[in-house]
């Protein structure tokens, strides 16, 4: 930073572009600045992977809920008050000994916002978007996961209409744990398929 800067404000070109759009759209009545603040606040503080963790903990604990989730994830998830803003269809996929599920969006970064919040940077990165499909085991290895050869990896490509939630395997030694404690074992990555649920001694 130079010391001879003047005492006036400076906007970056990017910041000015965003302000230009916002002020023009407000003038035309297409957006309302207060509504924008509410959206930002919602995504920053009220929506996040904790929503998805509640869904998973409930599915682990209640067989009927698990069945409903597998049959109609959109309804089962919205019954907990988590509804998507874009009216997307939710599909839940459960990991097992036989199959490990991995979610990607090869085109852009469609993501189940209502249950996971906003996507992490790596999810939006071109290498993840391309490699998850071509070399899913390599991607899993990058995340520190090595699966037995007998476990198939199934990759799900999200679209604007369909978003996936992975139900990770319930860790051993968690019988009798409350849903609240179980939810604490469910990481964001485990619900994308790039992680596993934490072991029971993590709580």
């Amino acid at each position: 930073m130079s010391h001879d800067h003047d005492d006036h404000s400076h906007l970056s070109d990017t910041d000015a572009r965003v302000r230009a759009l916002e002020s023009l759209l407000v003038e035309k009545g297409y957006i309302d600045s207060k509504a924008l603040d509410i959206i930002i606040d919602t995504y920053e503080t009220k929506i996040g992977p904790r929503n998805g963790a509640q869904v998973v903990a409930k599915a682990w604990s209640e067989p009927d809920y698990f069945k409903w989730l597998m049959e109609d994830a959109t309804a089962a998830i919205s019954s907990l008050g988590f509804t998507g803003r874009q009216g997307e269809h939710m599909v839940a996929v459960a990991n097992s000994d036989d199959t490990h599920h991995l979610v990607v969006c090869t085109l852009c970064s469609c993501y189940p916002w209502s249950v996971l919040g906003l996507p992490p940077t790596w999810y939006k990165s071109p290498p993840y978007r391309s490699r998850a499909v071509i070399d899913p085991r390599g991607v899993l290895a990058d995340f520190g996961i090595t699966l037995p050869e007998t476990t198939a990896v199934e990759v799900h490509d999200s679209t604007a209409e369909t978003r996936y939630l992975v139900i990770p395997r319930r860790p051993n030694g968690t019988d009798g744990m409350s849903q609240e404690d179980l939810a604490a074992l469910v990481t964001r990555n485990s619900m994308i398929g790039t992680g596993l649920a934490l072991s029971s001694d993590a709580v």
Partner: peptide, 23 residues
Amino acid sequence: AEGEPVFAEPWEAQAFAMAVSLN
């Protein structure tokens, strides 16, 4: 989200919210 800021800069949040709002 798990240790990572959701938006790196305020303008990102504004741009994000504008698209959501217009939709």
